[in-house]
Design a protein around this nucleic acid. Structure first.
Lengths: 143, 143
DNA sequence: CTGGATCCCATAGGATACTG
DNA sequence: CAGTATCCTATGGGATCCAG
Protein backbone atom coordinates (compact mmCIF):
# COMPACT_ATOMS: atom_id res chain seq x y z
CA UNK A 1 0.00 0.00 0.00
CA UNK A 2 1.71 3.04 -1.23
CA UNK A 3 1.31 3.22 -4.91
CA UNK A 4 1.81 6.42 -6.75
CA UNK A 5 0.67 8.58 -3.91
CA UNK A 6 3.30 11.20 -3.58
CA UNK A 7 6.41 9.78 -5.13
CA UNK A 8 5.51 9.81 -8.78
CA UNK A 9 7.52 12.61 -10.37
CA UNK A 10 4.85 13.43 -12.88
CA UNK A 11 1.99 14.47 -10.70
CA UNK A 12 -1.13 14.50 -12.79
CA UNK A 13 -3.44 17.00 -11.16
CA UNK A 14 -1.22 19.56 -9.54
CA UNK A 15 1.88 21.18 -10.89
CA UNK A 16 2.99 22.64 -7.59
CA UNK A 17 4.40 20.33 -4.97
CA UNK A 18 1.69 19.09 -2.68
CA UNK A 19 3.96 17.52 -0.17
CA UNK A 20 6.20 20.24 1.05
CA UNK A 21 3.16 21.24 3.04
CA UNK A 22 3.82 18.85 5.87
CA UNK A 23 6.51 19.84 8.24
CA UNK A 24 6.53 18.36 11.67
CA UNK A 25 3.96 15.88 12.72
CA UNK A 26 2.87 14.04 9.63
CA UNK A 27 6.33 12.71 8.99
CA UNK A 28 6.51 8.99 9.63
CA UNK A 29 9.42 7.74 11.64
CA UNK A 30 9.36 10.82 13.81
CA UNK A 31 8.31 10.24 17.37
CA UNK A 32 6.29 13.40 17.71
CA UNK A 33 3.12 11.59 16.80
CA UNK A 34 3.42 8.85 19.38
CA UNK A 35 4.52 11.24 22.10
CA UNK A 36 1.56 13.45 21.35
CA UNK A 37 -0.75 10.49 21.49
CA UNK A 38 0.68 9.59 24.84
CA UNK A 39 0.23 12.93 26.57
CA UNK A 40 -3.05 13.62 24.84
CA UNK A 41 -4.76 10.44 25.94
CA UNK A 42 -7.81 10.28 28.10
CA UNK A 43 -6.20 10.69 31.52
CA UNK A 44 -2.62 11.92 31.24
CA UNK A 45 -3.54 15.58 31.03
CA UNK A 46 -5.59 15.31 34.18
CA UNK A 47 -2.86 13.59 36.11
CA UNK A 48 -0.32 16.19 35.03
CA UNK A 49 -2.69 18.95 35.96
CA UNK A 50 -3.26 17.55 39.42
CA UNK A 51 0.42 16.98 40.09
CA UNK A 52 1.29 20.54 39.26
CA UNK A 53 0.14 21.75 42.63
CA UNK A 54 1.66 19.14 44.86
CA UNK A 55 2.87 15.62 45.26
CA UNK A 56 0.00 13.17 45.53
CA UNK A 57 -0.45 9.57 46.54
CA UNK A 58 -2.12 6.90 44.48
CA UNK A 59 -5.41 7.02 46.33
CA UNK A 60 -5.50 10.79 46.31
CA UNK A 61 -5.18 10.76 42.56
CA UNK A 62 -7.86 8.12 42.21
CA UNK A 63 -10.24 10.11 44.37
CA UNK A 64 -9.50 13.35 42.57
CA UNK A 65 -10.13 12.02 39.09
CA UNK A 66 -13.71 10.94 39.18
CA UNK A 67 -14.42 8.14 36.78
CA UNK A 68 -10.94 6.70 36.44
CA UNK A 69 -10.43 3.03 37.20
CA UNK A 70 -7.44 1.92 39.21
CA UNK A 71 -6.29 0.00 36.19
CA UNK A 72 -6.17 3.06 33.99
CA UNK A 73 -4.64 5.16 36.73
CA UNK A 74 -1.86 2.61 37.11
CA UNK A 75 -1.31 2.44 33.38
CA UNK A 76 -1.30 6.19 32.99
CA UNK A 77 1.13 6.67 35.84
CA UNK A 78 3.47 4.00 34.48
CA UNK A 79 3.50 5.57 31.05
CA UNK A 80 4.16 9.03 32.38
CA UNK A 81 6.90 7.71 34.62
CA UNK A 82 8.46 5.85 31.73
CA UNK A 83 8.50 9.02 29.67
CA UNK A 84 10.13 10.91 32.51
CA UNK A 85 7.17 13.22 33.01
CA UNK A 86 6.49 12.20 36.58
CA UNK A 87 8.57 10.67 39.36
CA UNK A 88 7.48 7.81 41.54
CA UNK A 89 8.74 7.47 45.09
CA UNK A 90 8.09 4.37 47.17
CA UNK A 91 8.40 4.54 50.94
CA UNK A 92 9.07 1.10 52.41
CA UNK A 93 6.60 1.33 55.25
CA UNK A 94 3.96 -1.13 56.31
CA UNK A 95 0.98 0.35 54.68
CA UNK A 96 2.80 1.07 51.43
CA UNK A 97 3.14 4.74 50.64
CA UNK A 98 3.82 5.79 47.07
CA UNK A 99 4.04 9.39 46.01
CA UNK A 100 3.89 10.86 42.56
CA UNK A 101 5.33 14.19 41.56
CA UNK A 102 5.94 16.12 38.40
CA UNK A 103 9.52 15.90 37.15
CA UNK A 104 11.29 19.02 35.88
CA UNK A 105 10.48 17.84 32.38
CA UNK A 106 6.87 17.42 33.38
CA UNK A 107 6.79 20.97 34.72
CA UNK A 108 7.79 22.40 31.37
CA UNK A 109 5.13 20.30 29.72
CA UNK A 110 2.58 21.62 32.10
CA UNK A 111 3.12 25.15 30.88
CA UNK A 112 2.21 24.12 27.39
CA UNK A 113 -0.76 22.07 28.44
CA UNK A 114 -2.07 24.99 30.40
CA UNK A 115 -2.15 27.03 27.21
CA UNK A 116 -4.14 24.37 25.44
CA UNK A 117 -6.63 24.03 28.24
CA UNK A 118 -6.83 27.79 28.46
CA UNK A 119 -7.75 27.96 24.81
CA UNK A 120 -10.42 25.35 25.32
CA UNK A 121 -11.86 27.24 28.25
CA UNK A 122 -11.84 30.55 26.45
CA UNK A 123 -13.50 29.18 23.36
CA UNK A 124 -15.88 26.55 24.64
CA UNK A 125 -18.86 28.85 24.33
CA UNK A 126 -18.01 29.54 20.72
CA UNK A 127 -17.53 25.86 19.99
CA UNK A 128 -20.82 24.98 21.61
CA UNK A 129 -22.50 27.65 19.53
CA UNK A 130 -20.91 26.32 16.38
CA UNK A 131 -22.14 22.85 17.19
CA UNK A 132 -25.65 24.08 17.79
CA UNK A 133 -25.58 25.93 14.50
CA UNK A 134 -24.26 22.90 12.65
CA UNK A 135 -26.78 20.54 14.19
CA UNK A 136 -29.68 22.87 13.57
CA UNK A 137 -28.72 23.31 9.96
CA UNK A 138 -28.20 19.61 9.45
CA UNK A 139 -31.56 18.85 11.01
CA UNK A 140 -33.38 21.45 8.93
CA UNK A 141 -31.86 20.07 5.75
CA UNK A 142 -32.91 16.56 6.51
CA UNK A 143 -36.60 17.39 6.96
CA UNK B 1 -22.85 5.79 39.93
CA UNK B 2 -21.57 8.56 42.11
CA UNK B 3 -21.84 7.56 45.67
CA UNK B 4 -20.08 9.33 48.46
CA UNK B 5 -16.92 10.04 46.57
CA UNK B 6 -16.45 13.73 46.96
CA UNK B 7 -19.71 15.06 48.19
CA UNK B 8 -19.91 13.53 51.62
CA UNK B 9 -19.29 16.27 54.15
CA UNK B 10 -17.60 14.00 56.64
CA UNK B 11 -14.62 12.72 54.75
CA UNK B 12 -13.28 9.74 56.60
CA UNK B 13 -9.64 9.46 55.69
CA UNK B 14 -8.34 12.95 55.22
CA UNK B 15 -8.83 15.98 57.35
CA UNK B 16 -7.56 18.44 54.78
CA UNK B 17 -9.63 19.01 51.70
CA UNK B 18 -8.40 16.76 48.95
CA UNK B 19 -10.63 18.13 46.31
CA UNK B 20 -9.85 21.78 46.09
CA UNK B 21 -6.88 20.54 44.11
CA UNK B 22 -8.81 20.23 40.92
CA UNK B 23 -9.54 23.38 39.07
CA UNK B 24 -10.35 23.20 35.43
CA UNK B 25 -10.53 19.95 33.64
CA UNK B 26 -11.55 17.33 36.12
CA UNK B 27 -14.86 19.00 36.82
CA UNK B 28 -17.72 17.01 35.40
CA UNK B 29 -20.30 18.91 33.44
CA UNK B 30 -17.66 21.16 32.00
CA UNK B 31 -17.04 20.68 28.32
CA UNK B 32 -13.31 21.17 28.47
CA UNK B 33 -12.72 17.45 28.66
CA UNK B 34 -14.74 16.51 25.62
CA UNK B 35 -13.39 19.37 23.57
CA UNK B 36 -9.88 18.36 24.46
CA UNK B 37 -10.60 14.80 23.48
CA UNK B 38 -11.88 16.02 20.17
CA UNK B 39 -8.90 18.09 19.15
CA UNK B 40 -6.43 15.66 20.63
CA UNK B 41 -7.63 12.65 18.72
CA UNK B 42 -5.56 10.69 16.29
CA UNK B 43 -6.01 12.87 13.22
CA UNK B 44 -7.40 16.29 14.10
CA UNK B 45 -4.07 17.81 14.95
CA UNK B 46 -2.65 16.75 11.63
CA UNK B 47 -5.54 18.15 9.67
CA UNK B 48 -5.31 21.45 11.50
CA UNK B 49 -1.60 21.56 10.92
CA UNK B 50 -1.99 20.97 7.21
CA UNK B 51 -4.74 23.53 6.81
CA UNK B 52 -2.69 26.23 8.45
CA UNK B 53 -0.73 26.84 5.29
CA UNK B 54 -3.49 26.82 2.76
CA UNK B 55 -6.90 25.60 1.74
CA UNK B 56 -6.86 21.97 0.70
CA UNK B 57 -9.20 19.60 -1.06
CA UNK B 58 -10.31 16.25 0.25
CA UNK B 59 -7.94 14.23 -1.87
CA UNK B 60 -5.02 16.48 -1.10
CA UNK B 61 -5.60 15.93 2.58
CA UNK B 62 -5.90 12.20 2.12
CA UNK B 63 -2.65 12.09 0.19
CA UNK B 64 -0.85 14.28 2.67
CA UNK B 65 -1.77 12.27 5.72
CA UNK B 66 -0.29 8.90 5.02
CA UNK B 67 -2.18 6.14 6.73
CA UNK B 68 -5.52 7.81 7.15
CA UNK B 69 -8.56 6.10 5.71
CA UNK B 70 -11.14 8.11 3.83
CA UNK B 71 -13.63 7.15 6.49
CA UNK B 72 -11.60 8.68 9.27
CA UNK B 73 -10.74 11.70 7.18
CA UNK B 74 -14.42 12.30 6.56
CA UNK B 75 -15.26 11.83 10.22
CA UNK B 76 -12.45 14.09 11.36
CA UNK B 77 -13.40 16.83 8.92
CA UNK B 78 -17.05 16.65 9.95
CA UNK B 79 -16.21 16.93 13.61
CA UNK B 80 -13.89 19.85 13.07
CA UNK B 81 -16.45 21.55 10.90
CA UNK B 82 -19.13 20.99 13.48
CA UNK B 83 -16.96 22.57 16.13
CA UNK B 84 -16.32 25.56 13.93
CA UNK B 85 -12.60 24.85 13.61
CA UNK B 86 -12.62 24.43 9.86
CA UNK B 87 -14.84 25.64 7.05
CA UNK B 88 -16.11 23.49 4.23
CA UNK B 89 -16.86 24.95 0.82
CA UNK B 90 -18.59 22.95 -1.88
CA UNK B 91 -18.32 24.04 -5.49
CA UNK B 92 -21.23 22.72 -7.55
CA UNK B 93 -19.22 21.52 -10.47
CA UNK B 94 -19.36 18.22 -12.25
CA UNK B 95 -16.49 16.50 -10.60
CA UNK B 96 -17.36 17.74 -7.15
CA UNK B 97 -14.84 20.09 -5.67
CA UNK B 98 -14.77 20.58 -1.91
CA UNK B 99 -12.27 22.75 -0.15
CA UNK B 100 -11.39 22.87 3.50
CA UNK B 101 -9.88 25.83 5.30
CA UNK B 102 -9.10 26.83 8.83
CA UNK B 103 -11.69 29.14 10.35
CA UNK B 104 -10.61 32.15 12.42
CA UNK B 105 -11.30 30.08 15.50
CA UNK B 106 -9.20 27.31 14.08
CA UNK B 107 -6.34 29.71 13.50
CA UNK B 108 -6.20 30.68 17.14
CA UNK B 109 -6.22 27.02 18.06
CA UNK B 110 -3.36 26.41 15.75
CA UNK B 111 -1.15 28.78 17.71
CA UNK B 112 -1.66 26.73 20.81
CA UNK B 113 -1.18 23.43 19.08
CA UNK B 114 2.07 24.66 17.64
CA UNK B 115 3.33 25.25 21.17
CA UNK B 116 2.47 21.72 22.18
CA UNK B 117 4.10 20.21 19.14
CA UNK B 118 7.09 22.45 19.69
CA UNK B 119 7.46 21.12 23.19
CA UNK B 120 7.29 17.57 21.91
CA UNK B 121 9.94 18.26 19.31
CA UNK B 122 12.24 19.96 21.75
CA UNK B 123 11.97 17.22 24.32
CA UNK B 124 11.65 14.06 22.32
CA UNK B 125 15.29 13.17 22.79
CA UNK B 126 14.92 13.50 26.53
CA UNK B 127 11.74 11.43 26.53
CA UNK B 128 13.35 8.72 24.47
CA UNK B 129 16.26 8.67 26.88
CA UNK B 130 13.91 8.41 29.84
CA UNK B 131 12.17 5.49 28.21
CA UNK B 132 15.42 3.72 27.55
CA UNK B 133 16.45 4.23 31.16
CA UNK B 134 13.13 2.97 32.44
CA UNK B 135 13.11 -0.08 30.23
CA UNK B 136 16.68 -0.96 31.04
CA UNK B 137 16.04 -0.70 34.74
CA UNK B 138 12.82 -2.68 34.53
CA UNK B 139 14.55 -5.40 32.54
CA UNK B 140 17.47 -5.63 34.94
CA UNK B 141 15.14 -5.93 37.91
CA UNK B 142 13.19 -8.72 36.35
CA UNK B 143 16.23 -10.96 35.74
C1' DC C 1 -13.99 13.53 -6.86
C1' DT C 2 -16.24 13.32 -2.46
C1' DG C 3 -18.09 10.97 0.27
C1' DG C 4 -22.00 7.41 2.55
C1' DA C 5 -23.03 2.55 4.15
C1' DT C 6 -21.36 -1.96 5.91
C1' DC C 7 -18.64 -5.20 7.90
C1' DC C 8 -15.23 -6.50 10.94
C1' DC C 9 -11.39 -6.49 14.00
C1' DA C 10 -7.99 -4.59 17.35
C1' DT C 11 -7.46 -2.07 21.19
C1' DA C 12 -8.82 1.04 25.05
C1' DG C 13 -10.68 0.81 29.02
C1' DG C 14 -14.31 -0.57 32.84
C1' DA C 15 -15.57 -4.11 36.68
C1' DT C 16 -14.16 -7.21 39.77
C1' DA C 17 -11.29 -10.17 42.58
C1' DC C 18 -6.87 -11.16 44.52
C1' DT C 19 -1.90 -10.07 46.68
C1' DG C 20 2.31 -8.10 49.24
C1' DC D 1 -2.42 1.13 50.49
C1' DA D 2 -1.00 0.22 46.04
C1' DG D 3 -1.18 -2.28 42.94
C1' DT D 4 -1.64 -7.05 39.56
C1' DA D 5 -4.45 -10.38 36.94
C1' DT D 6 -8.68 -11.61 34.35
C1' DC D 7 -12.54 -10.96 31.94
C1' DC D 8 -15.45 -8.55 28.96
C1' DT D 9 -17.59 -4.75 26.41
C1' DA D 10 -17.50 -0.47 23.80
C1' DT D 11 -15.40 2.14 20.56
C1' DG D 12 -11.99 3.52 17.11
C1' DG D 13 -10.76 2.80 12.99
C1' DG D 14 -9.44 -0.07 8.62
C1' DA D 15 -11.23 -2.35 4.17
C1' DT D 16 -14.44 -2.53 0.81
C1' DC D 17 -18.30 -1.44 -2.02
C1' DC D 18 -21.62 1.83 -3.65
C1' DA D 19 -23.60 6.58 -5.14
C1' DG D 20 -24.27 11.48 -6.65
Amino acid sequence: MKEGTLNSPSNLCSSEADYDVLQWDVREGCEVRQILDRIADKWSLLVIALLEKRTLRFTQLRNSIEGISQRMLTTTLRNLERDGIIERTVYPVVPPRVEYALSPLGCTLHETIRALVGWTESNQAEILAARARYDAKAASERW
